[in-house]
């Protein structure tokens, strides 16, 4: 055995400690891998079963997520159910690699890349820092998993809509190009806010929509262009909430701030009319016959 190997052994022995701490490390290692996947997968399946997965991802992805989460649950349970193997640490170094299970110290190194314990790095400060970082990472992950487990699912709020700039993107995919059309015989009854917003944005003559009936559910955001108007807004999600883009239609409703808070869900019933406020960005806005508070829909986004 070389001197270098001896130093590594000594460092490893220090890192491993007694058999008791080895078992603790092994158990921690299982939980920080398989345990985390198990918690995440159980939560994903729970959201799937209760129909709440749509708060986070496009429902089109549900079969894939449910399938892979089920596989992950089975494999995680297999890892946790696997009989624990204890090794005698007084063996020769050549068999160190036969440790069947990694140690919490390994996690520390995988998180921060420190080499101290396994290589006998003499820098104690770095060892301490890497240890602290490893423990902090483990604690953060544990708290995160617990939060995922117990906190109720929540859709994105109006604050995100304001950060992301309502109608900042056009959202004219092939699908909407085919369904959104400005024509005398167009069927607008199935239009959501996504289609209305796209139609208003892409049309060179939005005035032709005047007197067209409008009814939609959305949440209230302030209009940048008119104090007497608010924007009836929904998020459109292509894949998951991270790509959610707010789209909306301007509703002329003087004094709306006294009746509704930003973020409140409302049903607007009315028709398109010439925008009374000349400062508004669009020549057309919705003239509402009624604006009624409504509960947040179970599926708060459009897809």
């Amino acid at each position: 055995m070389s001197a270098d190997t001896g130093r590594r052994d000594a460092a490893r022995d220090r890192a491993i400690g007694t058999d008791g701490s080895d078992e603790t490390n092994e158990r921690g290692s299982r939980w920080l891998g398989a345990g985390l996947i198990l918690v995440m997968s159980v939560c994903a399946l729970w959201l799937t079963v209760t129909g709440q997965l749509a708060i986070y991802v496009n429902p089109g992805n549900t079969p894939f997520i449910a399938t892979m989460s089920s596989i992950a649950v089975v494999l995680s349970v297999a890892v946790l159910a696997r009989p624990r193997v204890r090794h005698d640490h007084h063996h020769e170094h050549e068999h160190d690699h036969e440790h069947e299970h990694p140690h919490l110290d390994d996690l520390v190194h995988e998180v921060d890349g420190s080499t101290s314990a396994l290589t006998g790095d003499p820098r104690p400060t770095r060892r301490v820092l890497s240890g602290v970082l490893g423990v902090a990472t483990a604690a953060f992950c544990a708290i995160f998993a617990l939060a995922f487990l117990v906190l109720p699912p929540r859709a994105l709020s109006a604050s995100v809509a304001e950060i992301r700039d309502v109608n900042g993107g056009l959202l004219l995919t092939d699908a909407t190009d085919q369904t959104v059309q400005l024509a005398a015989d167009a069927d607008y009854s199935t239009y959501g806010l996504r289609e209305w917003a796209a139609l208003l944005r892409q049309s060179t003559h939005p005035e032709s929509l005047i007197a067209t009936p409008f009814e939609a559910i959305g949440f209230v955001t302030a209009s940048d262009e008119s104090e007497d108007s608010f924007v009836l807004t929904r998020f459109v999600v292509s894949h998951c909430a991270i790509d959610a883009q707010p789209v909306g239609v301007t509703v002329y409703s003087p004094g709306w701030e006294e009746r509704f808070e930003v973020g409140a869900w409302v049903t607007v019933d009315g028709s398109f009319a010439t925008a009374p406020d000349s400062s508004a960005g669009s020549p057309v806005s919705v003239a509402p016959e009624s604006v009624d508070p409504t509960p947040e829909p179970d599926v708060p986004y459009e897809y």
């Binding site: 494999l75 117990v150 906190l151 929540r154 909430a241 991270i242």
Partner: peptide, 29 residues
């Protein structure tokens, strides 16, 4: 609990974080 009154900024952060995680998890598996 079905309802829990938490700061809106935290709710948004957590929802966005979970959306990336739930989207990534099946690909990780």
């Amino acid at each position: 609990p079905e309802q829990l009154d938490l700061p809106q900024a935290f709710n948004d952060f957590f929802t966005l974080t979970l959306s990336v995680l739930i989207e990534s998890l099946p690909f990780i598996v």
